[in-house]
Design a protein around this nucleic acid. Structure first.
Length: 546
RNA sequence: GCCCCUGUAGCUCAGCGGAUAGAGCAUCGGCUUCCGGAGCCGUGUGCGCAGGUUCGAUUCCUGCCAGGGGCGCCA
Protein backbone atom coordinates (compact mmCIF):
# COMPACT_ATOMS: atom_id res chain seq x y z
CA UNK A 1 0.00 0.00 0.00
CA UNK A 2 1.07 3.53 -0.67
CA UNK A 3 2.53 5.30 2.36
CA UNK A 4 -0.02 7.99 1.99
CA UNK A 5 -2.96 5.63 2.30
CA UNK A 6 -1.50 3.86 5.28
CA UNK A 7 -1.04 7.14 7.14
CA UNK A 8 -4.58 8.15 6.29
CA UNK A 9 -5.84 4.87 7.68
CA UNK A 10 -3.82 5.45 10.79
CA UNK A 11 -5.45 8.83 11.24
CA UNK A 12 -8.92 7.37 10.77
CA UNK A 13 -8.12 4.79 13.39
CA UNK A 14 -7.01 7.49 15.78
CA UNK A 15 -10.19 9.47 15.18
CA UNK A 16 -12.25 6.39 15.98
CA UNK A 17 -10.23 5.90 19.12
CA UNK A 18 -11.22 9.40 20.21
CA UNK A 19 -14.85 8.84 19.33
CA UNK A 20 -14.72 11.35 16.48
CA UNK A 21 -16.29 11.20 13.06
CA UNK A 22 -13.88 9.08 11.03
CA UNK A 23 -15.95 9.19 7.88
CA UNK A 24 -14.71 12.66 6.94
CA UNK A 25 -12.23 13.09 4.14
CA UNK A 26 -8.74 13.04 5.60
CA UNK A 27 -6.47 15.43 3.77
CA UNK A 28 -2.85 14.45 3.81
CA UNK A 29 -0.61 16.97 2.09
CA UNK A 30 3.03 17.39 1.39
CA UNK A 31 4.04 20.53 3.26
CA UNK A 32 5.54 23.23 1.11
CA UNK A 33 8.28 23.57 3.67
CA UNK A 34 10.22 20.33 4.08
CA UNK A 35 10.94 21.20 7.70
CA UNK A 36 7.29 20.54 8.33
CA UNK A 37 7.79 16.84 7.74
CA UNK A 38 7.06 14.46 4.92
CA UNK A 39 3.30 14.61 5.27
CA UNK A 40 0.88 16.85 7.06
CA UNK A 41 -2.79 16.77 7.91
CA UNK A 42 -5.19 19.57 8.78
CA UNK A 43 -7.71 17.18 10.30
CA UNK A 44 -7.53 18.77 13.75
CA UNK A 45 -8.28 22.18 12.26
CA UNK A 46 -11.22 20.79 10.37
CA UNK A 47 -12.75 18.90 13.29
CA UNK A 48 -11.97 21.30 16.12
CA UNK A 49 -15.30 23.06 16.03
CA UNK A 50 -17.33 19.86 16.09
CA UNK A 51 -15.17 18.47 18.86
CA UNK A 52 -15.53 21.75 20.73
CA UNK A 53 -11.81 21.96 21.27
CA UNK A 54 -9.06 24.39 20.41
CA UNK A 55 -7.40 23.02 17.22
CA UNK A 56 -4.01 22.61 18.84
CA UNK A 57 -5.48 20.73 21.79
CA UNK A 58 -7.34 18.41 19.49
CA UNK A 59 -4.20 17.92 17.44
CA UNK A 60 -2.32 16.91 20.57
CA UNK A 61 -5.08 14.48 21.49
CA UNK A 62 -4.87 12.89 18.06
CA UNK A 63 -1.11 12.81 18.24
CA UNK A 64 -1.27 11.01 21.60
CA UNK A 65 -3.46 8.26 20.15
CA UNK A 66 -1.39 8.06 16.98
CA UNK A 67 1.76 7.48 18.96
CA UNK A 68 0.20 4.34 20.39
CA UNK A 69 -0.65 3.09 16.94
CA UNK A 70 2.13 4.05 14.62
CA UNK A 71 4.56 1.78 12.94
CA UNK A 72 8.31 2.04 12.74
CA UNK A 73 8.06 3.69 9.32
CA UNK A 74 7.08 6.90 11.05
CA UNK A 75 9.99 8.40 12.90
CA UNK A 76 8.17 11.31 14.53
CA UNK A 77 4.82 13.05 14.80
CA UNK A 78 4.58 16.71 15.69
CA UNK A 79 1.90 19.29 16.20
CA UNK A 80 2.77 22.61 14.61
CA UNK A 81 1.36 25.96 13.61
CA UNK A 82 -2.34 26.46 14.24
CA UNK A 83 -2.89 22.71 14.65
CA UNK A 84 -1.30 20.79 11.83
CA UNK A 85 -0.11 17.29 12.57
CA UNK A 86 3.15 16.61 10.80
CA UNK A 87 4.55 13.19 10.08
CA UNK A 88 8.24 12.53 9.69
CA UNK A 89 8.97 9.29 7.91
CA UNK A 90 11.96 7.06 7.80
CA UNK A 91 13.79 7.62 4.52
CA UNK A 92 13.27 4.01 3.51
CA UNK A 93 9.96 4.90 1.87
CA UNK A 94 11.79 7.13 -0.57
CA UNK A 95 14.06 4.30 -1.60
CA UNK A 96 10.99 2.17 -2.21
CA UNK A 97 9.64 4.94 -4.44
CA UNK A 98 12.84 5.02 -6.46
CA UNK A 99 12.66 1.27 -7.02
CA UNK A 100 9.06 1.66 -8.15
CA UNK A 101 9.99 4.42 -10.61
CA UNK A 102 12.86 2.50 -12.16
CA UNK A 103 10.84 -0.69 -12.31
CA UNK A 104 7.91 1.06 -13.98
CA UNK A 105 10.07 2.89 -16.51
CA UNK A 106 9.00 5.88 -18.57
CA UNK A 107 6.22 3.90 -20.19
CA UNK A 108 4.51 3.13 -16.93
CA UNK A 109 5.51 5.61 -14.24
CA UNK A 110 2.71 8.13 -13.68
CA UNK A 111 0.46 6.17 -15.98
CA UNK A 112 -3.02 6.21 -14.52
CA UNK A 113 -5.84 3.83 -15.25
CA UNK A 114 -8.76 6.02 -14.30
CA UNK A 115 -10.02 6.45 -17.85
CA UNK A 116 -10.47 2.71 -18.19
CA UNK A 117 -10.45 2.89 -21.94
CA UNK A 118 -13.49 5.13 -22.27
CA UNK A 119 -13.57 7.11 -25.48
CA UNK A 120 -12.75 10.81 -25.61
CA UNK A 121 -12.69 12.97 -28.71
CA UNK A 122 -10.46 16.00 -28.43
CA UNK A 123 -11.34 18.50 -31.11
CA UNK A 124 -8.88 21.31 -31.58
CA UNK A 125 -7.49 23.84 -34.03
CA UNK A 126 -10.43 23.42 -36.46
CA UNK A 127 -9.34 26.49 -38.35
CA UNK A 128 -11.14 27.36 -41.57
CA UNK A 129 -9.36 26.11 -44.69
CA UNK A 130 -9.18 29.66 -45.97
CA UNK A 131 -5.55 30.37 -45.24
CA UNK A 132 -2.49 29.25 -43.31
CA UNK A 133 -2.56 28.76 -39.55
CA UNK A 134 -1.29 31.74 -37.62
CA UNK A 135 0.71 32.01 -34.43
CA UNK A 136 -2.45 32.16 -32.33
CA UNK A 137 -3.57 28.75 -33.61
CA UNK A 138 -0.32 27.35 -32.28
CA UNK A 139 -1.49 27.71 -28.72
CA UNK A 140 -4.67 25.75 -29.27
CA UNK A 141 -2.76 23.17 -31.30
CA UNK A 142 -0.11 22.50 -28.66
CA UNK A 143 -2.63 22.66 -25.86
CA UNK A 144 -5.07 20.28 -27.52
CA UNK A 145 -2.38 17.76 -28.37
CA UNK A 146 -0.97 17.85 -24.86
CA UNK A 147 -4.44 17.42 -23.35
CA UNK A 148 -4.85 14.39 -25.60
CA UNK A 149 -1.53 13.04 -24.36
CA UNK A 150 -2.58 13.55 -20.75
CA UNK A 151 -5.87 11.77 -21.32
CA UNK A 152 -4.08 8.92 -23.04
CA UNK A 153 -1.71 8.53 -20.14
CA UNK A 154 -4.65 8.47 -17.77
CA UNK A 155 -6.11 5.53 -19.60
CA UNK A 156 -8.62 7.13 -21.95
CA UNK A 157 -8.95 6.08 -25.54
CA UNK A 158 -8.40 9.36 -27.34
CA UNK A 159 -9.13 10.54 -30.86
CA UNK A 160 -7.75 13.86 -32.12
CA UNK A 161 -10.11 15.58 -34.53
CA UNK A 162 -9.93 18.64 -36.71
CA UNK A 163 -13.29 19.98 -37.88
CA UNK A 164 -13.03 21.42 -41.36
CA UNK A 165 -15.46 24.20 -42.31
CA UNK A 166 -15.06 23.47 -45.98
CA UNK A 167 -18.23 25.17 -47.17
CA UNK A 168 -20.30 28.26 -46.49
CA UNK A 169 -19.83 31.99 -46.66
CA UNK A 170 -16.20 32.15 -45.64
CA UNK A 171 -15.19 29.46 -48.12
CA UNK A 172 -17.03 31.27 -50.89
CA UNK A 173 -15.26 34.50 -50.02
CA UNK A 174 -11.95 32.70 -49.97
CA UNK A 175 -12.61 31.16 -53.38
CA UNK A 176 -13.76 34.50 -54.74
CA UNK A 177 -10.58 36.12 -53.45
CA UNK A 178 -8.42 33.52 -55.16
CA UNK A 179 -10.42 33.80 -58.37
CA UNK A 180 -10.10 37.57 -58.35
CA UNK A 181 -6.34 37.30 -58.04
CA UNK A 182 -6.13 34.77 -60.83
CA UNK A 183 -8.02 37.02 -63.21
CA UNK A 184 -6.20 40.14 -62.09
CA UNK A 185 -9.26 41.76 -60.49
CA UNK A 186 -9.31 43.36 -57.05
CA UNK A 187 -10.09 41.08 -54.15
CA UNK A 188 -13.63 41.73 -52.87
CA UNK A 189 -13.67 44.11 -49.95
CA UNK A 190 -15.04 41.49 -47.55
CA UNK A 191 -12.72 38.85 -49.00
CA UNK A 192 -9.32 37.67 -47.88
CA UNK A 193 -6.47 40.10 -48.33
CA UNK A 194 -3.46 38.25 -46.98
CA UNK A 195 -0.37 38.11 -49.13
CA UNK A 196 -0.71 34.33 -49.23
CA UNK A 197 -3.79 34.81 -51.45
CA UNK A 198 -1.63 36.19 -54.23
CA UNK A 199 0.98 33.50 -53.76
CA UNK A 200 -1.57 30.73 -53.77
CA UNK A 201 -3.44 32.19 -56.73
CA UNK A 202 -0.27 31.86 -58.76
CA UNK A 203 -0.10 28.16 -57.96
CA UNK A 204 -3.61 27.28 -59.16
CA UNK A 205 -3.50 25.09 -62.29
CA UNK A 206 -5.57 26.57 -65.06
CA UNK A 207 -9.18 25.47 -65.01
CA UNK A 208 -9.17 24.22 -61.44
CA UNK A 209 -12.05 25.23 -59.16
CA UNK A 210 -10.55 27.79 -56.76
CA UNK A 211 -12.74 26.54 -53.91
CA UNK A 212 -11.78 22.89 -54.26
CA UNK A 213 -8.16 23.68 -54.99
CA UNK A 214 -7.95 26.33 -52.28
CA UNK A 215 -9.33 24.03 -49.64
CA UNK A 216 -6.74 21.38 -50.48
CA UNK A 217 -4.01 23.97 -50.50
CA UNK A 218 -4.99 25.21 -47.05
CA UNK A 219 -5.34 21.72 -45.62
CA UNK A 220 -1.94 20.78 -46.97
CA UNK A 221 -0.45 23.82 -45.29
CA UNK A 222 -2.21 22.98 -42.00
CA UNK A 223 -1.04 19.38 -42.02
CA UNK A 224 2.48 20.37 -42.82
CA UNK A 225 2.96 22.83 -39.98
CA UNK A 226 1.11 20.64 -37.48
CA UNK A 227 3.30 17.75 -38.47
CA UNK A 228 6.34 19.94 -37.91
CA UNK A 229 4.99 20.48 -34.42
CA UNK A 230 4.70 16.72 -34.00
CA UNK A 231 0.90 16.86 -34.00
CA UNK A 232 -1.03 14.25 -35.96
CA UNK A 233 -4.81 14.15 -36.16
CA UNK A 234 -6.80 10.93 -36.30
CA UNK A 235 -9.45 12.52 -38.43
CA UNK A 236 -10.24 15.64 -40.39
CA UNK A 237 -13.99 15.88 -40.21
CA UNK A 238 -15.44 17.66 -43.22
CA UNK A 239 -18.56 19.82 -42.99
CA UNK A 240 -19.30 19.07 -46.64
CA UNK A 241 -19.43 15.36 -45.85
CA UNK A 242 -22.41 16.03 -43.59
CA UNK A 243 -24.26 17.75 -46.38
CA UNK A 244 -23.66 14.73 -48.56
CA UNK A 245 -24.63 12.22 -45.86
CA UNK A 246 -27.75 14.18 -44.98
CA UNK A 247 -26.61 14.51 -41.36
CA UNK A 248 -27.30 18.22 -41.31
CA UNK A 249 -30.88 17.92 -42.54
CA UNK A 250 -31.38 15.07 -40.12
CA UNK A 251 -30.16 17.21 -37.24
CA UNK A 252 -32.53 19.95 -38.29
CA UNK A 253 -35.44 17.49 -38.21
CA UNK A 254 -34.39 16.23 -34.82
CA UNK A 255 -34.33 19.73 -33.41
CA UNK A 256 -37.74 20.35 -34.88
CA UNK A 257 -39.13 17.14 -33.42
CA UNK A 258 -37.66 18.01 -30.05
CA UNK A 259 -39.55 21.30 -30.27
CA UNK A 260 -36.21 23.05 -29.93
CA UNK A 261 -36.58 25.20 -33.04
CA UNK A 262 -39.10 27.45 -34.73
CA UNK A 263 -39.59 29.60 -37.85
CA UNK A 264 -39.49 33.37 -37.81
CA UNK A 265 -38.82 35.97 -40.48
CA UNK A 266 -38.16 33.22 -42.97
CA UNK A 267 -35.37 31.74 -40.86
CA UNK A 268 -35.15 28.73 -38.56
CA UNK A 269 -34.17 29.51 -34.98
CA UNK A 270 -32.83 27.48 -32.06
CA UNK A 271 -34.64 28.08 -28.77
CA UNK A 272 -31.38 28.59 -26.96
CA UNK A 273 -32.94 31.09 -24.54
CA UNK A 274 -34.51 28.09 -22.85
CA UNK A 275 -30.97 27.18 -21.84
CA UNK A 276 -29.63 30.46 -20.48
CA UNK A 277 -28.68 32.07 -23.77
CA UNK A 278 -29.25 35.82 -24.25
CA UNK A 279 -31.18 35.34 -27.43
CA UNK A 280 -32.31 32.61 -29.77
CA UNK A 281 -29.89 31.73 -32.54
CA UNK A 282 -30.38 31.25 -36.22
CA UNK A 283 -29.84 27.75 -37.61
CA UNK A 284 -30.98 28.32 -41.21
CA UNK A 285 -30.88 31.78 -42.70
CA UNK A 286 -33.82 33.22 -44.63
CA UNK A 287 -31.87 32.62 -47.86
CA UNK A 288 -31.81 28.92 -47.05
CA UNK A 289 -28.10 28.79 -46.18
CA UNK A 290 -27.00 27.20 -42.91
CA UNK A 291 -25.31 29.29 -40.27
CA UNK A 292 -22.10 28.04 -38.75
CA UNK A 293 -24.10 26.67 -35.83
CA UNK A 294 -26.26 24.02 -37.48
CA UNK A 295 -23.53 21.95 -39.14
CA UNK A 296 -21.50 22.20 -35.97
CA UNK A 297 -24.42 20.85 -33.95
CA UNK A 298 -24.67 17.98 -36.43
CA UNK A 299 -20.96 17.35 -35.96
CA UNK A 300 -21.35 17.28 -32.20
CA UNK A 301 -24.21 14.81 -32.47
CA UNK A 302 -21.94 12.61 -34.53
CA UNK A 303 -19.20 12.88 -31.94
CA UNK A 304 -21.58 12.13 -29.06
CA UNK A 305 -22.44 8.84 -30.72
CA UNK A 306 -18.80 7.93 -31.03
CA UNK A 307 -17.44 8.95 -27.62
CA UNK A 308 -18.45 9.18 -24.01
CA UNK A 309 -16.78 12.51 -23.52
CA UNK A 310 -16.00 15.43 -25.80
CA UNK A 311 -13.29 17.98 -25.23
CA UNK A 312 -13.31 21.05 -27.48
CA UNK A 313 -10.53 23.58 -27.63
CA UNK A 314 -11.81 26.92 -28.83
CA UNK A 315 -10.25 30.33 -29.13
CA UNK A 316 -11.41 33.14 -26.85
CA UNK A 317 -13.30 34.73 -29.72
CA UNK A 318 -15.64 31.71 -29.79
CA UNK A 319 -16.57 31.66 -26.14
CA UNK A 320 -20.04 33.02 -26.90
CA UNK A 321 -20.82 29.80 -28.78
CA UNK A 322 -20.49 27.57 -25.75
CA UNK A 323 -23.93 28.37 -24.41
CA UNK A 324 -25.73 27.83 -27.70
CA UNK A 325 -23.87 24.61 -28.48
CA UNK A 326 -24.68 23.20 -25.06
CA UNK A 327 -28.26 24.35 -25.53
CA UNK A 328 -28.49 22.42 -28.77
CA UNK A 329 -26.91 19.34 -27.25
CA UNK A 330 -29.19 19.44 -24.24
CA UNK A 331 -32.35 20.07 -26.20
CA UNK A 332 -31.61 16.90 -28.15
CA UNK A 333 -31.54 14.95 -24.93
CA UNK A 334 -27.81 14.69 -24.30
CA UNK A 335 -26.16 15.55 -21.02
CA UNK A 336 -24.24 18.78 -21.70
CA UNK A 337 -21.69 17.73 -19.09
CA UNK A 338 -20.33 15.29 -21.64
CA UNK A 339 -19.13 18.29 -23.61
CA UNK A 340 -16.21 20.15 -22.15
CA UNK A 341 -15.25 23.35 -23.94
CA UNK A 342 -11.85 24.74 -23.08
CA UNK A 343 -11.14 28.28 -24.20
CA UNK A 344 -7.63 29.48 -24.95
CA UNK A 345 -7.03 33.17 -24.44
CA UNK A 346 -5.26 35.29 -27.03
CA UNK A 347 -1.61 35.17 -27.96
CA UNK A 348 0.14 38.48 -28.37
CA UNK A 349 3.14 37.95 -30.54
CA UNK A 350 6.12 40.17 -30.16
CA UNK A 351 9.13 40.58 -32.30
CA UNK A 352 11.82 43.13 -31.65
CA UNK A 353 9.64 44.47 -28.89
CA UNK A 354 6.84 45.27 -31.29
CA UNK A 355 3.42 43.79 -30.98
CA UNK A 356 2.27 41.95 -34.08
CA UNK A 357 -1.45 41.91 -34.67
CA UNK A 358 -2.91 38.51 -35.40
CA UNK A 359 -5.81 39.07 -37.73
CA UNK A 360 -6.36 36.83 -40.68
CA UNK A 361 -8.55 39.40 -42.41
CA UNK A 362 -6.09 42.24 -42.53
CA UNK A 363 -3.37 40.15 -44.08
CA UNK A 364 -0.99 41.28 -41.41
CA UNK A 365 -0.34 37.94 -39.80
CA UNK A 366 2.52 35.87 -38.54
CA UNK A 367 2.10 32.38 -39.79
CA UNK A 368 2.56 29.49 -37.41
CA UNK A 369 5.05 28.02 -39.83
CA UNK A 370 7.20 31.12 -39.39
CA UNK A 371 7.11 30.71 -35.63
CA UNK A 372 8.10 27.06 -35.85
CA UNK A 373 10.83 27.84 -38.32
CA UNK A 374 12.16 30.64 -36.18
CA UNK A 375 12.19 29.02 -32.74
CA UNK A 376 11.99 25.31 -33.53
CA UNK A 377 9.22 22.87 -32.66
CA UNK A 378 10.40 22.06 -29.13
CA UNK A 379 10.73 25.66 -28.04
CA UNK A 380 7.42 26.52 -29.70
CA UNK A 381 5.55 23.74 -27.92
CA UNK A 382 7.18 24.34 -24.57
CA UNK A 383 6.51 28.06 -24.76
CA UNK A 384 2.87 27.67 -25.74
CA UNK A 385 2.48 25.31 -22.77
CA UNK A 386 4.38 27.48 -20.35
CA UNK A 387 1.34 29.01 -18.75
CA UNK A 388 -2.35 28.49 -18.12
CA UNK A 389 -4.59 28.91 -21.17
CA UNK A 390 -6.69 31.32 -19.08
CA UNK A 391 -4.12 34.07 -19.35
CA UNK A 392 -3.39 36.19 -22.36
CA UNK A 393 -0.01 35.05 -23.54
CA UNK A 394 2.86 37.18 -24.66
CA UNK A 395 4.99 35.09 -26.98
CA UNK A 396 8.23 36.87 -27.63
CA UNK A 397 9.97 35.38 -30.64
CA UNK A 398 13.21 37.09 -29.75
CA UNK A 399 13.20 35.71 -26.26
CA UNK A 400 12.37 32.20 -27.35
CA UNK A 401 14.85 32.01 -30.20
CA UNK A 402 17.63 34.53 -29.98
CA UNK A 403 18.49 34.61 -26.32
CA UNK A 404 18.66 30.92 -25.58
CA UNK A 405 19.83 31.32 -22.01
CA UNK A 406 16.47 32.79 -21.06
CA UNK A 407 14.58 29.93 -22.60
CA UNK A 408 13.20 27.34 -20.17
CA UNK A 409 12.97 24.57 -22.74
CA UNK A 410 16.72 24.44 -23.09
CA UNK A 411 17.11 24.40 -19.35
CA UNK A 412 14.97 21.28 -19.12
CA UNK A 413 16.41 19.55 -22.16
CA UNK A 414 19.91 20.33 -20.99
CA UNK A 415 19.24 18.61 -17.68
CA UNK A 416 18.31 15.54 -19.66
CA UNK A 417 21.31 15.75 -21.96
CA UNK A 418 23.66 16.14 -19.01
CA UNK A 419 22.49 12.89 -17.47
CA UNK A 420 22.73 11.14 -20.81
CA UNK A 421 26.22 12.48 -21.19
CA UNK A 422 27.19 11.19 -17.76
CA UNK A 423 25.80 7.77 -18.64
CA UNK A 424 27.74 7.71 -21.85
CA UNK A 425 30.85 8.51 -19.87
CA UNK A 426 29.99 5.74 -17.43
CA UNK A 427 29.83 3.34 -20.32
CA UNK A 428 33.18 4.53 -21.62
CA UNK A 429 34.95 4.02 -18.31
CA UNK A 430 33.53 0.54 -18.00
CA UNK A 431 31.02 1.18 -15.24
CA UNK A 432 28.74 -1.80 -14.73
CA UNK A 433 25.46 -1.20 -12.96
CA UNK A 434 24.42 -3.91 -10.53
CA UNK A 435 20.90 -5.34 -10.44
CA UNK A 436 18.81 -2.94 -8.43
CA UNK A 437 18.12 -5.51 -5.73
CA UNK A 438 21.84 -5.58 -4.94
CA UNK A 439 22.21 -1.84 -4.61
CA UNK A 440 22.14 -0.11 -1.26
CA UNK A 441 19.92 2.88 -1.95
CA UNK A 442 20.25 4.08 1.61
CA UNK A 443 23.56 5.54 0.45
CA UNK A 444 21.39 8.34 -0.89
CA UNK A 445 21.32 10.77 2.02
CA UNK A 446 22.12 14.13 0.42
CA UNK A 447 19.22 16.57 0.36
CA UNK A 448 19.86 17.05 -3.39
CA UNK A 449 19.21 13.36 -3.81
CA UNK A 450 16.18 13.09 -1.59
CA UNK A 451 14.41 16.07 -3.16
CA UNK A 452 14.63 14.38 -6.54
CA UNK A 453 12.93 11.24 -5.28
CA UNK A 454 10.20 13.29 -3.64
CA UNK A 455 9.53 15.03 -6.94
CA UNK A 456 9.39 11.72 -8.77
CA UNK A 457 6.89 10.52 -6.22
CA UNK A 458 4.75 13.58 -6.84
CA UNK A 459 4.64 13.15 -10.60
CA UNK A 460 1.68 10.74 -10.74
CA UNK A 461 -0.37 13.19 -8.68
CA UNK A 462 0.67 16.05 -10.92
CA UNK A 463 -0.34 14.09 -13.99
CA UNK A 464 -3.68 13.24 -12.38
CA UNK A 465 -4.38 16.85 -11.53
CA UNK A 466 -3.25 18.16 -14.90
CA UNK A 467 -5.57 15.63 -16.52
CA UNK A 468 -8.48 16.43 -14.25
CA UNK A 469 -8.10 20.15 -14.85
CA UNK A 470 -7.01 19.77 -18.48
CA UNK A 471 -4.03 21.91 -17.58
CA UNK A 472 -0.78 20.73 -19.20
CA UNK A 473 1.08 23.78 -17.94
CA UNK A 474 1.23 22.02 -14.59
CA UNK A 475 3.48 19.48 -16.25
CA UNK A 476 5.65 22.29 -17.56
CA UNK A 477 5.93 23.74 -14.09
CA UNK A 478 6.88 20.37 -12.62
CA UNK A 479 9.51 19.85 -15.30
CA UNK A 480 11.09 23.23 -14.69
CA UNK A 481 11.31 22.62 -10.96
CA UNK A 482 12.57 19.09 -11.42
CA UNK A 483 15.21 20.27 -13.88
CA UNK A 484 16.35 22.89 -11.38
CA UNK A 485 16.65 20.17 -8.71
CA UNK A 486 18.64 18.07 -11.15
CA UNK A 487 21.08 20.84 -11.99
CA UNK A 488 21.53 21.35 -8.26
CA UNK A 489 22.24 17.67 -7.75
CA UNK A 490 24.59 17.64 -10.71
CA UNK A 491 26.45 20.52 -9.22
CA UNK A 492 26.87 19.08 -5.74
CA UNK A 493 26.90 15.32 -6.22
CA UNK A 494 29.10 13.43 -8.58
CA UNK A 495 28.07 10.04 -9.81
CA UNK A 496 31.35 8.85 -11.32
CA UNK A 497 34.91 9.27 -10.19
CA UNK A 498 37.60 7.59 -8.15
CA UNK A 499 36.75 9.66 -5.10
CA UNK A 500 33.19 8.38 -5.09
CA UNK A 501 32.58 5.19 -3.18
CA UNK A 502 31.52 2.44 -5.67
CA UNK A 503 28.33 1.68 -3.72
CA UNK A 504 27.38 5.35 -3.84
CA UNK A 505 28.03 5.45 -7.58
CA UNK A 506 25.68 2.51 -7.96
CA UNK A 507 22.97 4.20 -5.91
CA UNK A 508 23.32 7.50 -7.72
CA UNK A 509 23.22 5.78 -11.05
CA UNK A 510 19.83 4.35 -10.13
CA UNK A 511 18.72 7.80 -9.05
CA UNK A 512 19.74 9.17 -12.45
CA UNK A 513 17.83 6.41 -14.20
CA UNK A 514 14.79 7.48 -12.23
CA UNK A 515 15.43 11.12 -13.12
CA UNK A 516 15.55 10.30 -16.82
CA UNK A 517 12.22 8.56 -16.47
CA UNK A 518 10.67 11.60 -14.82
CA UNK A 519 11.97 13.92 -17.53
CA UNK A 520 10.88 11.59 -20.29
CA UNK A 521 7.36 11.31 -18.89
CA UNK A 522 7.05 15.06 -18.56
CA UNK A 523 8.51 15.95 -21.92
CA UNK A 524 6.46 13.31 -23.66
CA UNK A 525 3.28 14.77 -22.18
CA UNK A 526 4.24 18.14 -23.61
CA UNK A 527 5.29 16.64 -26.92
CA UNK A 528 8.81 17.99 -26.50
CA UNK A 529 11.76 15.83 -27.50
CA UNK A 530 14.27 14.52 -24.99
CA UNK A 531 17.62 14.98 -26.74
CA UNK A 532 20.48 12.69 -25.80
CA UNK A 533 22.86 15.47 -26.51
CA UNK A 534 22.67 19.16 -27.31
CA UNK A 535 25.70 21.18 -27.99
CA UNK A 536 26.05 24.85 -27.48
CA UNK A 537 25.88 26.81 -30.70
CA UNK A 538 29.30 27.95 -31.79
CA UNK A 539 29.62 31.37 -30.28
CA UNK A 540 30.91 33.87 -32.74
CA UNK A 541 34.18 35.11 -31.42
CA UNK A 542 34.25 38.73 -30.43
CA UNK A 543 36.20 41.02 -32.64
CA UNK A 544 39.93 41.15 -32.13
CA UNK A 545 41.87 38.61 -30.16
CA UNK A 546 43.25 40.88 -27.48
C1' G B 1 -25.58 47.29 -21.24
C1' C B 2 -24.70 41.79 -21.06
C1' C B 3 -21.16 37.44 -21.18
C1' C B 4 -16.00 35.17 -20.75
C1' C B 5 -10.70 35.61 -19.19
C1' U B 6 -7.08 38.27 -16.43
C1' G B 7 -5.10 41.60 -12.30
C1' U B 8 0.61 38.22 -7.47
C1' A B 9 8.20 40.96 -7.43
C1' G B 10 10.96 45.89 -12.22
C1' C B 11 9.32 42.17 -16.46
C1' U B 12 7.09 37.09 -17.83
C1' C B 13 4.45 33.84 -14.90
C1' A B 14 3.49 29.46 -10.84
C1' G B 15 0.60 28.92 -6.55
C1' C B 16 -5.01 21.55 -5.63
C1' G B 17 -9.05 26.79 1.36
C1' G B 18 -3.83 26.36 5.26
C1' A B 19 2.06 27.31 8.24
C1' U B 20 7.34 32.34 6.55
C1' A B 21 3.13 33.49 -1.05
C1' G B 22 7.32 30.96 -5.03
C1' A B 23 10.26 30.40 -10.05
C1' G B 24 12.68 32.40 -14.45
C1' C B 25 14.57 36.85 -16.49
C1' A B 26 16.60 41.57 -15.11
C1' U B 27 20.06 43.96 -10.83
C1' C B 28 24.18 43.22 -7.60
C1' G B 29 27.90 39.76 -5.45
C1' G B 30 30.29 34.94 -5.24
C1' C B 31 31.71 29.63 -7.30
C1' U B 32 36.68 26.68 -13.18
C1' U B 33 40.91 20.52 -9.23
C1' C B 34 33.59 20.06 -12.63
C1' C B 35 30.38 13.04 -15.19
C1' G B 36 29.02 19.28 -20.44
C1' G B 37 29.46 26.47 -16.67
C1' A B 38 23.14 26.51 -21.49
C1' G B 39 25.26 25.17 -14.57
C1' C B 40 25.35 26.27 -8.98
C1' C B 41 25.00 29.64 -4.47
C1' G B 42 23.67 34.26 -2.30
C1' U B 43 21.04 39.30 -2.75
C1' G B 44 14.54 42.32 -2.18
C1' U B 45 10.41 44.13 -3.53
C1' G B 46 4.40 41.83 -4.20
C1' C B 47 -1.40 39.16 -3.70
C1' G B 48 -5.97 45.91 -7.81
C1' C B 49 -9.87 47.95 -4.02
C1' A B 50 -14.04 47.01 -0.52
C1' G B 51 -17.24 43.73 1.81
C1' G B 52 -18.84 38.48 2.88
C1' U B 53 -18.31 32.99 4.02
C1' U B 54 -14.57 30.29 7.14
C1' C B 55 -10.95 28.31 12.89
C1' G B 56 -8.08 30.15 8.57
C1' A B 57 -8.89 33.60 1.98
C1' U B 58 -3.91 35.11 -3.04
C1' U B 59 -7.44 30.90 -3.53
C1' C B 60 -14.53 30.59 -2.67
C1' C B 61 -18.91 34.45 -3.09
C1' U B 62 -20.70 39.68 -4.10
C1' G B 63 -19.73 44.65 -5.64
C1' C B 64 -16.32 48.17 -7.66
C1' C B 65 -11.84 49.61 -10.55
C1' A B 66 -8.36 48.40 -14.58
C1' G B 67 -6.78 45.51 -19.06
C1' G B 68 -8.04 41.84 -23.01
C1' G B 69 -11.83 39.19 -25.80
C1' G B 70 -16.93 38.39 -27.36
C1' C B 71 -22.07 39.96 -27.95
C1' G B 72 -24.13 38.94 -36.70
C1' C B 73 -29.48 35.63 -40.67
C1' C B 74 -19.98 35.90 -40.34
C1' A B 75 -16.94 31.82 -38.86
Amino acid sequence: MDVRESIKNLIREALLGLGLDASVEVHLERPANSQHGDWSTNIALALAKKAELVPRDLANEIKRVLEELYSEDISAIEVAGPGFINFYLDKSWLYDVLVQVVTAGSDNWARLGEGEGSEVIVEFVSANPTGPLHAGHGRGACYGDSVARLLERSGYSVAREFYVNDRGTQMDLFAASLAACVSGRDVPEDGYHGTYIKEWAEEIPEGDDPLVWGKQRALTAHKEVLSDLNIEFDSWFSETSMVESGAIEETLSMLEEANASYQRDGATWLKSTEYDDDKDRVLVKSDGEYTYLLPDVAYHLDKLQRAERLVNVWGADHHGYITRMKAAVESLGYDPKRLDVEVTQMVNLQRSGEEVKLSKRTGDIVELSEVVKEVGPDAARFTYLLQSIDTTQTFDLDLVSRRVNENPVFYVQYAYARIRSMMKKADEVGFEPLPISEIDLSKLQHSRELVLIRSLHELPEIVARATRELAPHQITTWLREFAADLHGFYHDCRVLGDEIEPSLTQARFVLMQGALIGLEVGMHLLGVSAPEEMWRDEVESSEGDG
